[in-house]
Computed example of a mutant assay.
Amino acid sequence: MGKDGFRCVECNEKAPELHRDYSNGILKITICESCQKPVDKYIEYDPVIILIDAILCKTQAFRHILFNTSLNIQWKLCVFCLLCEAYLRWSLLHGTEQSSDPADIIRYTKEWEFYGMFGLAALELSAFCVAVLLFLMVVVGGLQGATLDLRLLLRALLLSCYGKVLLIPAVIWEHDHSPLCLGLIKMFVLTSNSQAIRVILNSSRRLSLLAVCVGLLSETCVAQASEKLLWSAQDILTFD
């Protein structure tokens, strides 16, 4: 982070440093000039505590992660979550049916179907992120005249999708795909997305929720269009 690249987790004011390193390993946490509180209390916290606060969608924890750390695992996390989501969709499509013949052509067909599910999941996520960014560019950048850091917003959106890791238990216990459970996971991810946007822009909750709703609408439209396209392709192949 460069100078003034940090933020106070309490009041969101910029800060030149999080702590001052004295000799003999003595560290002193910087006090915010605006709110007179520690700029970032989380630098002394255990990562587990930070994770719990992030799961609880606390604003301070999001500011710590998005502004005061150089965490750059968003792409790896994105690919991992997409793999879990693709496998979940693929397993729901085929259930528990298996081929007894290792050389059966159906087994390889199913493998390509998994890759297709991964592509669809990636396409839907891309539609969500693009719609959110375009909406914020129009509303915040165009109407309000504020500058947007699109790279930081994209990083925040991808990191805030960490809730999709909860799909791992659904992948492990593949016979317990509860629609209610999957719906709750989706709602949690959208809530985290909304909180991340609110923290980055320091905006109202209404704006962040509206941006997430626009993204969800775009994602839903892409999903439905992809499903219709797949059904049309299957009908053509069956007719031939």
Rank of each mutant, 00 (worst) to 15 (best):
L120K: 10
L153M: 15
T147K: 11
F118R: 04
G116Q: 07
V171C: 12
C181I: 14
V132S: 07
L143T: 00
A122S: 14
V140A: 04
L182D: 02
C181G: 06
L152W: 11
L123I: 04
S178F: 14
A146D: 04
D176Y: 13
V138L: 10
L166F: 11
L134Q: 07
G119H: 12
L148M: 10
L154P: 07
C161N: 11
L120R: 13
S178Q: 08
V130H: 06
L159K: 03
L120N: 12
P179Y: 09
M137C: 14
P169T: 06
V140P: 00
L125S: 04
V140C: 07
H175R: 09
L123Y: 05
L158D: 01
L148I: 15
L150G: 09
C129N: 03
L182W: 02
L180S: 11
V165W: 08
A156Y: 08
V138W: 08
L159Q: 10
R151L: 12
L167V: 10
L136A: 07
A121D: 09
L157D: 01
L136P: 00
M137P: 02
H177K: 15
I172R: 05
C181R: 08
P169A: 08
A170K: 03
L123F: 13
L180Q: 08
V138P: 05
D149S: 12
L123C: 12
L125K: 03
I172P: 03
G142D: 07
K164M: 13
K164Q: 11
Y162P: 03
G119T: 10
C181Y: 09
Q144A: 10
D149A: 14
R151E: 15
G119N: 09
V171L: 12
L167I: 12
M137F: 11
L182C: 07
